[in-house]
Design a protein around this nucleic acid. Structure first.
Lengths: 224, 224
DNA sequence: GTGTAAACTTTACAGTGTAAAGTAGATAAT
DNA sequence: ATTATCTACTTTACACTGTAAAGTTTACAC
């Protein structure tokens, strides 16, 4: 029976930052960020809560690690030179990832203490635009509007709490029920005649807005 | 000396939902939402924490009230029939309000339990588009992309933690310092040559993206 | 063995939301 | 006028949070 890495670690199944982060993400996925406590996380890992503080200075640093781990899941076709294909693919991956981790988007800090994955992602976006001929200024504009839109969309959908079309119809019905319909005629019309119809799919809304923004970016530079 | 509303309330300066909400917003503005506790809020109002539970079922309901109160601050020119002017004005008001209450955007629940101000705001947006000739479907698209963008922008800026240009330059410098510059050449270039320059203003980015989206909406319907 | 360092546990504390029960004072009922 | 009831608020208590401080176990170096 061989010990695993007995040379570097005295304990056989020692905790690592990554193991902790992955367990924490699992807990947050299941019970939201407010359901993640150091004690529960320790229990999940077969360890007391205080053990975690030998791998993270505090809970905030753990959360930063979780955020960067999520960022690492976002995939972009790095060899793609067509900026539009690159950005569309990256946006859809980001949206999908953030939908799987609905606790993440509200706490994604934009500029402060970016982790390595966050930096790598930014670098690849900027590079793609620059090599496609965008000026620095236009690149800033484009990256900013795209990120705002993607994180904003994830933020909205994270709070919808339903995913299937049937659930959407139920929620729509519930809202309409408690809504003084004649006080909000346009809103009531929109819910009944559109959002409760079978074809309505919230993620289609994301794609529509994404296309609108990509079209807008396309129009920024004369050399598309 | 006349008692104020002695007929309806036994205590002269009794708490009201609005007084509590306003004090809570003040606390959250100053110390973030995590700095808002029932005990501190009670203290601020000269009352024990549990007294608040006679006006709100729990802390969540208080927060819902805070959110709706913030929503009420957002102004739109209700008599305006030009949709573009309406939406631009409303968007800038929303962004300004959410910048003053940076704790709000991360916890704005999009669909669930909307308060009266939230409903009123939605109704007026939908109505504006519909009366401008937009179909129900296109109205949904337009309202969705606008709200995603506005709340997303507020979310980003809420976390920047700096507001003046000088502070931005400082933060940029700090990031650049700890950034392995040759690993992220494009990012480094962007920070030094653009975001640290004197003319850079984060809120200009918001306006730029807003224009891009309004242009996109303009192109949705043949009858603009 | 002795020493040292890392990984983990134990205990403790201040702070959180809120359930449950108690209290002061104004109103309503007889 | 006395009693009862209701409302606004307080007191006490509990389970839970993050984490500081100190103690314990284990593995390795010499």
């Amino acid at each position: 029976m061989s010990k695993i890495s007995s040379h570097t670690s005295p304990h056989p199944a020692a905790l690592t930052q990554d193991r902790v982060i992955e367990a924490a993400i699992k807990l947050a996925d299941a019970g939201g960020i407010e359901g993640l406590s150091m004690r529960k996380l320790g229990h999940e890992l077969g360890v007391e809560a205080m053990a975690l503080y030998h791998h993270f200075a505090n809970k905030n640093q753990l959360i930063e690690g979780m955020i960067d781990h999520v960022h690492r899941e976002i995939q972009a076709p790095l060899d793609e030179t067509n900026w539009r294909i690159f950005m569309r693919s990256r946006a859809e991956s980001a949206f999908e990832v953030l939908s799987r981790h609905p606790w993440a988007s509200p706490i994604m800090e934009s500029g402060v203490n970016p982790g390595p994955s966050t930096l790598k992602d930014s670098e690849s976006m900027i590079r793609c635009f620059r090599e496609a001929g965008f000026s620095i200024e236009m690149t800033v504009h484009a990256v900013t509007v795209l990120n705002i839109y993607i994180y904003g969309a994830a933020l909205q959908y994270a709070k919808l709490s339903f995913s299937t079309v049937e659930q959407a119809a139920e929620v729509g019905e519930a809202i309409k029920q408690q809504l003084p319909a004649d006080a909000y005629p346009y809103l009531a019309e929109m819910i009944t005649q559109h959002m409760m119809k079978a074809g309505y799919n919230p993620t289609d809304e994301f794609v529509f807005g994404l296309n609108l923004i990509l079209d807008g970016i396309d129009r920024l530079e004369p050399t598309h």
